[in-house]
Each structure stands twice: as C-alpha cells, then as structure tokens.
Design a protein around this nucleic acid. Structure first.
Lengths: 236, 236
DNA sequence: CCAGAATGCGAGCGACCGCTCGTGTTTGTC
DNA sequence: GACAAACACGAGCGGTCGCTCGCATTCTGG
C-alpha cells in the first residue's frame, strides 16, 4: 500500500523532518488502475520473468500508456514489491493461522499432506508467486523484498516444525526448515511443469519426500531411531 | 567445438549443398583466446547470471575487445552453449562411466552418498554449471542447449536408478529421476549457499533426503514394503 | 620474403529499456 | 460553473546491450 513514496524524494531531498508522506489521495479510478497494472505485471512476470519483463509491456498488457504506469509506481522494482506484498497478504488471508499450530498428535503424513496441498493449491492459483520466488534473477538488490518473502515462508515452516520437533536444537531446526522449503520449491517446479494425472503423481512424490525426510526426525521425539543406521541422524 | 558455424550463413543463405562447414583453420593463439573467453564468460555468468552478463563485460574480463569476442563466437548464446558443452565433456571425463553401473548389492546409502559427493565436488569446482543450470532465465529458446544438459543428467540418473529399481515401470522411473534431480538441485543451492561445517551439514541432509526417498522404492524390489503405510508407495 | 588468412581493435549502429515531461482530460469540491 | 488535483497520454531522453565493420597487426604456407 506504499505505492507512492519514493517519487517526491527524488529531484531534491525532501525537507529533513518531512518524513510524513502525504498519502496522495487516490480516486477509485486510480485504485482500479493499480489493480489492473498489478494483474498485468503478474501475467508478464509469469511468462517472461522479472528482468525480461519491460514496463512498457506491462503497461501495454494493462491497456494503458507507460506514463500512466509511472503515475502509480515509482519504478519497476516497486511493482514487484507491491505484488509480493499483496501475495503475502493473500497467503495470510487464505491460510489464516491454520498452519501455525500443529497438534503433535496429528500423524506426520496428514500434517505434511495437508500443508503441501494448501501450498500447491495456492501456487497454482497464483503462478506469479513462483515466478517472483524462483527466478527474480536479482539485478543486485531486489533481494531486499525477495528475502522478506523468503524469510516469512521460512519462519512459517520453522513454526510448523518446532511443534513437530520441540526438542531439536535451533540450528538444526533452521536447517531443516531450509531443507523443507528447498525440497518444496523443487517439487513445485516439477508439479507446475506437468498437467493432470502426472501433476498429481508429482504432488504425491513430493509429499512422500517430505514425509520420509521428516519421519526419522520426528521418530527421535519418541526416543527411538528406526532407520537402518544411515549417516548421522542429527547432522554435523 | 562448433564455435564457428552460424557466421557464414547470415548475410546470404549459403549455397544449398554447402553444408560442409570449412573448419576455419585456427591458430594456437585463437584456441588460447577461446579458452580465455570461456573462462571469462564463466566468471561473469557466475556473478551476474546469463542474461545480465553483457558480451562487452565478458570481453573486458578476458582483456580483449568486443570485436575479438565475435571473431570466435557468433553470438552470446553460443558462448553459453560452448561452455555447457565443455562442462558436459569435463563431467564425463571426471566421472568416467563410474556412475553408470551400480551393483545392486551395494547398500543404497553408499551408492547415493558416493554419487552425491561426486556431483557436489564437481559443482563446487565448476560453479558455472549451477549458474547455467539453475537460472538461465531463458530468453525464449536457449532451452535448446539447456535441455540437452538437463536431459543428459536425467539420462544418467535414470541409468543409475534402473539398476536400483529394475522392475519399475518406465514412467515411474522417469518421474523418480526427475524428482531426484530436482531434489539434488534444491540441495545444491543450499550447499553452495553455506560454508564450512554448515555446508557439510547440508550435504548430509541432502543424502538423507535422497536415501530416505529411495529406500522404500528399493524395498519394493525385495517384495517387502517396510514403511508405516504412508500414501501410495508406488505413486499414481 | 611476401601474399593472404587469422587475429585484434574500438567506435559506433540500431534496437530496446526504464523512465520523464509537457500537455490534455476526467473527477471531486465549493 | 470554476478550479485544483488526480489521471492519462505518448513522444522521446539518456543509457545499455548485442553486435558490426573498416582497418591494423600477426602468423603461416609456399
């Protein structure tokens, strides 16, 4: 919602204590244009990626002129940031806090399966999410917002895991969370790359991977290691 | 080694039956320049990615002029292609056929562990490989060579798997190979993103993931499913 | 030794990109 | 209806990028 902020602080440094950004009253038409532009940007980012997407192409897709686009966004990066922001909020709204608390009594397969299904469904509904997440081919410093997205997801996963693995060292927990997110992203790429039955099969495989990966760790919680003595169960 | 081919068929369509490309005799100096340029390209691709890497930057890094670069490569894509080609060959030379045959008697952990160690070591030695593999932010059709790389790796993995899972339907086998490669790429990203002990820990986690993922499938080979009745053991 | 091929240079062409700016139109307010 | 602010336009500016071209230099076969 901070679509317009940078603009006025460009030509000249604003008076020092002028931190109060006057909210630049928007009309309904403006809000509509913003939504229109974000939708167009999502479409273009999806098909060409962030860097290859031209602002002119986004404006064209939205049916407006380049100048109009820059009435609402100070630069190209802001479009991606606002888009990411709205996706974050939509994710929060969609999932609610339904993912945070996990009853330790829930079977692992059920917990993982439900989480994966939700995430996959969300990513299928909003393919931009994947595009922004996976290939922003960072021109140097867009990482600022990309990292925010990433960190939020990681925190969420870590929250999930901490209820599954309450007595795991924080370092291990963070590492496990990174692994889970990485595995999920890998699976997601394969899932989105296929259709119909094959897609479902990949979803199943992804669940399989995560369950199998987490099973022995959760097993530790019960004081029992059931594996066949494979390499160090708690790495490092 | 097909560095020069496109050049002559540009201005005018070459005489129809002139498919015989005259090999454009190279002097030792030229070969040296090519190696120099590829090394520079590797460095630049590594730090900026493919699309963001400018041919002028590559030439500068190699200490030559842009014109000189285009004496040896018809366009930017050809640089990436030749680089990928040489990496492919180097991989073949490094690994030999040592990865192809897997004694079914070898413990799964050992086989996976060895394969992962080799691949990781190779990727650490040649970081460009990851850069070309993971984020070529395809400007449309570089996929031609990118897919060749991908397909070669997949075939290699499928070969490995087929000796582990001889009686698996081909479709399942292909899917499993895709999963393994995806999981490996995800793990590799995390491995390369850390240093020292933490890196080793991620390597261990990656092995853990792959072993755990493949274990029940290999178990099927013995006619026994040892899992806790998790979602379909043979997916789809 | 010399003709011609291979190599090397670097200014610069054309295309595109992110973004601006002067100008005109719509909208809300009194 | 008048006036200002918000909105919309689109030519075009400054810059970069992939790549070219004319010309100089170095190598090599005869």
């Amino acid at each position: 919602m901070f679509v317009n902020r940078v603009r006025e602080s460009w030509g000249k440094r604003v008076a020092e204590s002028q931190e109060k950004e006057q909210p630049r009253r928007r009309q309904a038409r403006g809000e509509r244009r913003i939504a229109q532009l974000l939708e167009a940007a999502a479409s273009v980012f999806c098909t060409t990626g962030y860097t290859a997407a031209s602002t002119n192409a986004i404006a064209r897709e939205a049916g407006v002129s380049p100048g109009t686009l820059y009435q609402f966004f100070p630069n190209k990066e802001a479009i991606a940031i606002e888009l990411g922001d709205r996706l974050m909020h939509e994710m929060r709204d969609t999932f609610g806090e339904a993912l945070a608390p996990v009853d330790p009594a829930t079977p692992l397969e059920e917990a993982v399966g439900a989480a994966v299904d939700r995430f996959i469904a969300f990513n299928c509904d909003h393919p931009v999410f994947f595009a922004l997440m996976h290939g922003p081919d960072i021109p140097g410093h867009i990482a600022e917002e990309h990292d925010a997205l990433h960190a939020t997801l990681l925190a969420r996963i870590e929250g999930l895991l901490s209820s599954l693995l309450p007595d795991s060292p924080p370092a291990d927990l963070t590492r496990t969370a990174h692994m889970c997110l990485g595995l999920y992203k890998a699976g997601l790429e394969l899932v989105l790359g296929h259709e119909g039955a094959e897609r479902d099969a990949y979803v199943q495989e992804l669940k399989h991977v995560l369950i199998r990966y987490l099973e022995p760790l959760v097993g530790d919680r019960l004081g029992r290691v059931e594996g066949s003595g494979a390499g160090a169960t708690a790495a490092r």
